[in-house]
């Protein structure tokens, strides 16, 4: 039996070894090199950790893929509510009319313009400024992922141009700046880490 109940003859405990495996912390690291009991205990715990990894891999495989019916059913039941964000006033010809558009619809517009650029995928979009007051300056800040093999700088420049045109056409915002941050360059199809 390689695992005693609690404390080894050297005075160290399984709890200490267990913690050491998770955190690398141990009161007397040099001791682990020389103590056969502790080394056996660590070996056993490492084999258990490997078996735990196997169990996880097997459970993950058994759970199926995110494209399977169980996930489709879950997604179909979610009924995600919209996120309108702030209400952005629009000019109207008739003073009796109150017109507005939602911040959420403008974020969606920015995303769709960015996504339509080959190799680009929009991330977080922010409208910095008081969009609820007509004419106040607004800075658009956009995170962007670019697929590997697409030129970064021309992408950003032409995207800024496209965004300025789309925002001028679909909104009355006073766009003071469009800041694009390329947060990621995507190299290859990715899987769960």
């Amino acid at each position: 039996m390689s695992m005693p109940n609690d404390t080894f003859e050297c005075g160290h405990t399984i709890e200490e070894l267990s913690l050491y495996l998770d955190t690398g912390e141990f009161p007397d690291p040099a001791h682990l090199e020389s103590c056969p009991e502790c080394r056996n205990g660590l070996d056993s715990l490492r084999r258990l950790a490997a078996a735990g990894g196997e169990l996880f891999a097997s459970d993950l495989a058994a759970a199926g893929s995110g494209n399977d019916d169980w996930m489709k059913d879950i997604l179909a039941n979610l009924a995600l509510e919209l996120r309108p964000g702030r209400s952005i006033p629009l000019r109207s010809d008739d003073p009796a009319d109150t017109l507005s558009e939602t911040e959420g619809s403008i974020l969606a517009l920015v995303r769709s313009v960015a996504d339509s650029l080959p190799g680009a995928v929009a991330g977080k979009v922010r409208l910095d400024g008081d969009v609820t007051v007509p004419g106040s300056p607004v800075a658009v800040r956009l995170d962007l992922a670019v697929l590997f093999g697409h030129a970064l700088m021309p992408s950003a420049a032409s995207l800024r141009q496209d965004l300025a045109e789309a925002l001028a056409r679909h909104t009355e915002l006073n766009i003071a700046a469009i800041d694009i941050t390329i947060t990621d360059v995507i190299e290859a199809p990715r899987e769960e880490k």
Binding site: V121, D184, I186, A188
Partner: peptide, 8 residues
């Protein structure tokens, strides 16, 4: 969307 990082 399926290839971009989690943060995006």
């Amino acid at each position: 969307l399926d290839v971009v990082p989690d943060a995006i």
